[in-house]
Amino acid sequence: MLKIKQVYDFLSAMKTGIFLLMIIGLISAIGTVINPNHFFHTTYFKALLLLLFINLGFCTINQVSKFIKVVSKGKSKKAYLSRQISLLMLHLGIVLILVGGIVNAYNGQSLNIKIVQGDSINTADIINTKNPFSLTVNKFVIDFYDDGSPSQYISEVSIKEKDKLNHYSISVNHPLKYQGIKAYQHSYGYMVKVFSNDLLDSERSLVAEGQTLAFNNTTRTINLYRYIPNYDMRYGMNSKTARPDNPKIIYSLNEGEEMLGIGLADFDEEIVVDDNTSLTFTSVTPYTVLTIKSDPGLWLAAIGSILFMLGICWFWLFVSQRNRKSGNTTQGGINNGHN
């Protein structure tokens, strides 16, 4: 029994917590420089966070029981109460934020999904959900400033509910909340509509950037490299702005592995592939990328963050800024004063 007590004491000690914080801080700093995308998802790092969580949890439990003992004796001063309650609130807040994070790590789901304007998805196909629903992207719109820079990206969607069709718009900073799921505007792109007298895969008229088109009567192929909404020579293969002021399509004509040439086409401009084969790019259709997310731990993190903010503000304004020179030593608890 003594051994369990020793382990508990070690795990709940503030010195252990400080040490863990130091290690986590040091490793995080190194992680941002080395490999930020993978580093923070390694088991070692997660184990460190878990240890901190255990330490903080035990430490908070100790402080609560100590607090109850002192208060039940009924001799505690107001300053002591104020100090202990604010400290407990902010530490409990952090514990709850970490619990929320753990719940999210095990039960949270988040996926990016590409939906072409006009298409529908069913949330049941993307994530596990009790209340699946079907979402249609009616339109994807970019609002522009006068200079052509984007001011908002908006996906106009509709969700069928029983016999009613409800319309919503999802834009940056304005996610859709529906049936325990959130949908965020993540990014967007374009599909190019092609017309040809000779397409091998005649079903395929919407082509994504980077795809290659083959034909029946020739071995030559067309690679659709990129759609440029606002072409300007000075910007090369990048669009000057996202606004379609001067739309062009960059493509290459190939024979097997060999590239015969690169072209810059307008919409409806006929591209001669071979004697009997031609092709035109007729228009573009945008697609939107939505992040579909469910986070069952979010409410815990939310309560935790409110407790944390209230606790820390209380401590800052009503505890720490008292003039400690007047010698109001705190009873029982931590004493920061050294004057």
Partner: peptide
């Protein structure tokens, strides 16, 4: 959480703010 769908992404700014905080 509202803009990107994640309240913590280990983005360099976030991480260094956390290091400062620590």
């Amino acid at each position: 959480e509202q803009a990107w769908g994640r309240y913590w992404s280990w983005d360099p700014k976030e991480t260094w703010a956390l290091v400062t905080w620590i």
